[in-house]
Design a protein around this nucleic acid. Structure first.
Lengths: 100, 100
DNA sequence: CTCATCCGTAAGCATCTACTAACCGTAAGT
DNA sequence: ACTTACGGTTAGTAGATGCTTACGGATGAG
């Protein structure tokens, strides 16, 4: 779980994900749009792939990267569970506050 | 936005948030439950507070920390917007794939 | 008023991380 | 086969970060 948050915590990786959300792209294409070198993009993609946030597909010599919905779904699910728990604690505290 | 992800990316901070989700607590109480010193917890709480993930309330000499639902809501909203965009791109790519 | 408790902050250090430059492997075209 | 294009990997380095120890400020109890 921390893997996914750490992946999105890095601004450059978030930018990569934003670009890929618009349309799938190759590595060099991403590097041309971002203010970093191609190896840097490749390293970021490696992290994003490990977090299941992107998927890659070989297309000749190029590798097309695209969003992996599974990773985003995992984050959402964790957040929802957490959201419920925190709200329960919050309302419980509010009720205790009221009874005083 | 990167602030919130960076806050949750740190395992110790995630653990703190988990504890606070169960019930509001003081700083020393948290430090007693976690394998780090009290100042470390205090620094983490500072980051979490900046990310609007926790709120603090003065209670005598102690400070009670609790989950701030606003921060979690912001993450959820961002993720939802992003989720929709990525799914649209994903289905568009799938359709292009089918037409080939 | 004094003492004790609780907490935030500063300094210092070890560790991690994001970047560039250089290299190697692989696939397509001529 | 040779060349070109594309991308992953490996040093190596500069910057960021999480931890502890030591200190200072604020609140309550006696």
């Amino acid at each position: 779980m921390a893997n996914q948050f750490a992946a999105l915590a890095e601004p450059m990786r978030a930018a990569i994900v934003e670009r890929l959300a618009e349309r799938p792209m190759a590595v060099g294409e991403l590097a041309a749009l971002l203010p970093v070198s191609r190896p840097a993009v490749s390293q970021h993609l490696k992290v994003l792939k490990a977090a299941r946030l992107v998927r890659d597909e070989a297309k000749g010599t190029r590798r097309i990267y695209a969003i992996d919905p599974a990773g985003l779904g995992a984050i959402r699910a964790w957040l929802d569970r957490f959201w419920d728990r925190s709200l329960a604690a919050y309302t419980a505290a509010a009720e205790r506050e009221d009874s005083q």
